[in-house]
Design a protein around this nucleic acid. Structure first.
Length: 185
DNA sequence: ATGAAGATCCGG
DNA sequence: CGGATCTTCATT
């Protein structure tokens, strides 16, 4: 399998998010097939942390493409994101769900998958793609990829920047009126 | 200092 | 549907 390197994350966040569906995430002894992601853009996206969090803008300035951006949400759940730095197209990809053994819905949500993998703040800022015990490997999603509005945000709800594997049992939330997007190139 | 909001999840 | 439980940020 082909290991993804930082170059993968030097493109448009929506492209990165879409192509990550079907790839396999490895993290300290566990693996999961990514079945749901969301893209967040530095420019023109009011839902992105960069829009309203100075600390996030600092993080982006000080880290390179492919770095893990991990934060605690609601004081309870760790969110696992990957930094995208393509110049005009900086942003993040949030990993929202993975298929994993043994229980199909063990990784069916952004907070659930970090708990499953043991991902927490200690990984924040790490270049995990290049580490021995962590990384992402390219896969091919044969079920088709669908897109829709992002989940749980209050702004920019119109952007269809959530991507998922069609009919996966591990989606955090089912897609409504699934509009299949073209498979990757 | 203090308060509000937040890319969620579980249980009643 | 409310509570958990912590960080960031704006306001006092």
């Amino acid at each position: 399998m082909e290991r993804l390197n930082a170059d993968f994350f030097r493109r448009d966040p929506t492209l990165c998010a879409r192509e990550l569906v079907g790839c396999v995430l490895f993290w300290k002894g566990q693996r999961g097939t990514i079945v749901e992601t969301e893209a967040y853009a530095a420019v023109g996206d009011e839902a992105c942390h960069m829009w309203f969090r100075p600390k996030t803008r600092k993080f982006v300035a000080e880290h390179s493409a492919g770095a893990a951006y991990i934060y605690l949400n609601y004081g309870v759940h760790w969110m696992f994101n990957i930094l995208v730095k393509g110049g005009e197209t900086d942003g993040f990809v949030l990993i929202r769900a993975v298929e994993a053994e043994p229980h199909p819905r063990l990784g069916a949500g952004p907070g659930k998958l970090t708990k499953m993998f043991g991902i927490d703040g200690t990984g924040h800022g790490s270049l995990f793609l290049d580490r021995e015990e962590t990384g992402i490997f390219r896969g091919n999603e044969t079920r088709g990829i669908v897109a829709g509005p992002r989940i749980g945000i209050s702004r920019a709800q119109e952007l269809p920047w959530r991507f998922g594997a069609l009919n996966s049992a591990a989606l955090s939330v089912k897609f409504k009126n699934d509009a299949a997007v073209p498979a990757k190139v």
